[in-house]
Nucleic acid binder design. Structure first.
Lengths: 202, 202
DNA sequence: GTCTATAGAGAGATAGAC
DNA sequence: GTCTATCTCTCTATAGAC
């Protein structure tokens, strides 16, 4: 491997510390301690806090978007297959790192300038990717943004709300991680119903 | 009023600074400057950074939950009326302060211990509030957690994702604030479809 | 590559004059 | 109530010995 053991230990510690505390509250000392190395080694390998953070952020962006875009652009699957596949894969992926969505959305919001250059996704015109084209043939009357917000909201929001909801003793969010996994098979069916909903009613 | 003009100026500045930067990155000097007052006045009125933050957080918690719980517990409205009412009121309320959901979820996650005592909601047993009882009579086969996650996901997630999505040039999230407002009438209809979805199918 | 030691900037908080 | 000045601590980052 090209990375030394020390470098990888520091990177792994940085992943944990940044994900737990966010950029601002994370300290270089936290990272060094968690990695079991001397403070100055963190700077030796990564030069600055901002630099190591951007490396971690780029990794996380790839996980959160890189695992979803390829299925969205695939011209050889139906819309139903896409929804099935993405819901399943995505919930499994994020379940291994459940704070990922909050981390990415929240850190991006705080310093958009620092990350706008990180977009490999930046160039993608959603109007021309398969999943949106398929949606448009079924529902030309609805802005595809609604479709994406619905799908991602049903899939991702539970991870974002999990901490707060499970701590507020409501009696219904006690095994929220189990509930989230049930959603793998439910979300595609709910999305189908949403797709068929007549919005001019009432 | 019981609060002096200075105290209120500081509080308003604190609201803005904390919402923009989060607790960790916000500085007492930021707050003083934004309020147009001397640094030591912030400590004079609020004694510590943590203290003023908790005051703001409590306020924000009341906005995000206080505007929704009363409608959920109301025994005199149907489930359909609740969904209509909440979706509309909530989207209007949060639109005035669109970073509110991210702020509350994100700051809570980072320091749960600091805020667990802030719950006025803590004692509410969701299994006994009207909206959940109504849901259970319609769908006794589904965990009510799904119902709440669906409704709140459709309603709140767009606010959380808005920043990131609108900056990634997808071509479909350009007027996302307008899109979000359209959802006021759509969400109740989508929820109706979701409620009627047969989940044993396939 | 890894350590000790420290520079230099910035933070939260307070003492004390007015 | 409001100011100036400052204490004390902690942070990122680096210089320099090994």
């Amino acid at each position: 491997m090209t990375e030394t053991a020390t470098e990888e230990k520091i990177k792994e510690a940085a992943r944990i510390v940044f994900m737990e505390k966010g950029y601002a509250a994370a300290g270089m000392r936290d990272i060094a301690t968690k990695a079991g190395v001397n403070l100055s080694l963190v700077n030796y390998y990564f030069r600055s806090k901002k630099n190591i953070f951007q490396i971690i952020m780029l990794e996380k962006m790839h996980i959160i978007f890189g695992n979803i875009i390829p299925y969205m652009v695939d011209e050889n699957t139906t819309l139903e297959e896409k929804l099935n596949h993405i819901a399943t894969v995505y919930i499994d992926t994020i379940s291994e790192d459940p704070n990922l969505p909050m981390f990415v959305f929240s850190e991006f919001q705080k310093n958009p300038e620092d990350f706008s250059f990180l977009f490999p996704i930046k160039k993608i015109n959603f109007n021309e990717i398969s999943i949106i084209k398929q949606f448009k043939t079924i529902r030309p009357d609805i802005n595809p943004a609604h479709f994406m917000l619905n799908f991602l909201g049903l899939t991702i929001f539970p991870f974002i709300a999990a901490h707060l909801f499970s701590k507020m003793n409501t009696g219904i969010f006690d095994n929220i991680q189990t509930v989230i996994k049930e959603r793998k098979s439910f979300i595609p069916l709910w999305m189908k119903s949403i797709l068929e909903t007549n919005l001019t009613a009432k």
